[in-house]
């Protein structure tokens, strides 16, 4: 079972609908035991970093997610959920994140483009991985902050004035800045790829 972490953040149900559509057994839950026992954990998220960390903390899920990662259980963070995987964020004051990938979450610098980045942007591969299929494909983004991290953790990126990581990975911990559940067939394919990586325990590329 894939556990979708339920912590009162926006629109987690659309992610659930996508997993249901793909026939991936899943459950929306904030139960620590279920999350620890899950085959894989998906951390969604819409909204602000600080508020999200407070909600996770309230449910004692910060330590739970750290344990999940230490147990080598695959984790997929999506949008704000991806940002939470990093060490810290500057959104509304410096806030600590889960610290599962090295880096900090910062405001997209003003290069004359509209902020938030809202719409379809084209990915390019930074390093080989099972997600190679995303190369040249458009996915759907809605965000004002981005992950400033080491290039070795960047699987793919988009250009939005600066290079913005779109898929990041540190071994069994993966993040997607875009919404795969809103990115049409390309997004569904990426969720299937993640499922396959979980089934075959293939996180060796990074």
């Amino acid at each position: 079972m894939f556990a979708i972490v339920d912590y009162d953040t926006g629109n987690t149900r659309n992610l659930k609908k996508a997993l249901n559509y793909l026939g991936i057994d899943n459950e929306l839950t904030d139960d620590k035991e279920k999350i620890l026992q899950a085959e894989a954990v998906i951390l969604p998220g819409v909204g602000a970093f600080k508020a999200a960390m407070v909600e996770l903390e309230k449910r004692d899920l910060v330590n739970t997610l750290k344990k999940v990662a230490a147990n080598k259980t695959p984790i997929l963070g999506i949008c704000l959920g991806m940002q939470l995987l990093f060490d810290s964020s500057q959104e509304y004051g410096l806030t600590n994140g889960l610290g599962l990938i090295t880096g900090s979450v910062e405001q997209i610098p003003d290069t004359g483009l509209k902020i938030p980045q809202m719409g379809w942007n084209q990915n390019r591969i930074i390093q080989n991985s099972p997600f190679n299929g995303v190369n040249g494909q458009f996915t759907y983004f809605v965000h004002s902050y981005y992950a400033n991290c080491d290039r070795r953790n960047i699987i793919s990126a988009v250009d939005y004035g600066i290079l913005i990581p779109s898929i990041v990975q540190n071994k069994n911990v993966i993040g997607m800045q875009f919404h795969p559940e809103k990115s049409g067939d390309v997004g569904l394919e990426l969720l299937k790829t993640f499922q396959k990586m979980v089934k075959t325990n293939d996180f060796s590329s990074n």
Partner: peptide, 8 residues
Amino acid sequence: VSSQVFMP
């Protein structure tokens, strides 16, 4: 619609 169609 949102159970069958995956775009904004």
